[in-house]
């Protein structure tokens, strides 16, 4: 039996396939864009191809992420907080606290045996999220994925005083015009974001092990800054972007077993082929 988790995030959509034993068979990522359904379809197709499977081979599919309602071939939608908790626990069984920094939100979670027992999220503002780095990287004319390497060459960290993303962009321009080296500015941006996230996380009582997930965890500069701001080690998965989708696949496996016991297994044909953003039945 095979299970799928699909995570439609604000920036990236991810699909993961596992077998009955929880072994990862394939994983595909792609930018979300405005047409959730089309991309959910595409990443799912990619994941199936990578694993050499057909859609009908999949016993249960769980969709998560803020676009989860736009995955018509999913059997169930589960909130991303629950999926992240389950996913990160499967990777680090000792995890008690996890921080997921995504494109438009940051989630700080307390986890007990894979269950979510508390959480806080950013409110009303993108300043503590990946969008902060994305916007400032664009202002600096550098690629997001290069920020970590650039920051590693810093001789000092410039203090970025504005928490607001828009004002921080202006501040960065002013720093550049003063001749501040790029690497010092980037290092400053990392520590500014990390401090904000750490302040949010500390509303929960942080207990080790602590894991950092989400796209921002792929940035080595941010991982360094988070360790420094929190004053403790952080664990980072090899594929931090896939944690939610992985958790969704694990929940799919559990949900299948429960449904099989209750006699409530989903029936009918999956709508992988027909599913497009402009499907006639949705008009």
């Amino acid at each position: 039996m095979y299970f799928a988790g699909i995570d439609v995030g604000s920036t990236m959509t991810k699909a993961v396939l596992t077998n009955e034993g929880g072994e990862l068979l394939s994983a595909v990522k792609g930018p979300t864009g405005p047409e959730h359904r089309r991309l959910a379809n595409e990443v799912m197709r990619g994941a199936l191809e990578q694993a050499g499977l057909q859609i009908d081979d999949i016993s249960y599919i769980v969709a998560t992420g803020y676009g989860r309602v736009n995955v018509p071939f999913a059997d169930r939608q589960v909130t991303e907080l629950s999926c992240h908790a389950r996913g990160v626990f499967s990777l680090f069984p000792g995890v008690k606290t996890a921080i997921d920094i995504g494109g438009q939100d940051v989630k700080c979670m307390k986890i007990n045996g894979g269950r979510l027992i508390g959480f806080v999220m950013n409110d009303k503002c993108a300043a503590g999220t990946g969008r902060f780095l994305e916007a400032t990287a664009a202002t600096l004319g550098i690629r997001l994925e290069d920020m970590g390497d650039i920051a590693s060459k810093a001789t000092k960290r410039v203090q970025i005083s504005n928490l607001c993303t828009i004002f921080a962009q202006q501040e960065v321009v002013a720093l550049l015009s003063r001749g501040e080296p790029l690497e010092n500015i980037v290092a400053g941006l990392h520590i500014a974001l990390a401090s904000r996230v750490a302040a949010l996380a500390q509303r929960l009582v942080i207990e080790p092990d602590l894991a950092l997930t989400g796209g921002v965890a792929m940035n080595t500069g941010m991982v360094r800054a988070m360790r420094e701001s929190l004053g403790r080690d952080v664990l980072v998965p090899e594929e931090p972007l896939l944690t939610g989708a992985l958790g969704a696949a694990i929940i799919a496996n559990e949900a299948y077993r429960e449904a099989a016991e209750d006699g409530t297994l989903p029936t009918g044909t999956r709508r992988l082929e027909e599913a497009t953003f402009f499907a006639e039945e949705d008009l």
Binding site: Y66, T79, S82, N112, L116, I117, F119, M121
Partner: peptide, 14 residues
């Protein structure tokens, strides 16, 4: 509302 659903898991735990 998106936060309500995961909060149920938390309430169940406590």
């Amino acid at each position: 509302l998106a936060r309500a659903e995961p909060f149920e898991e938390t309430m169940d735990h406590y």
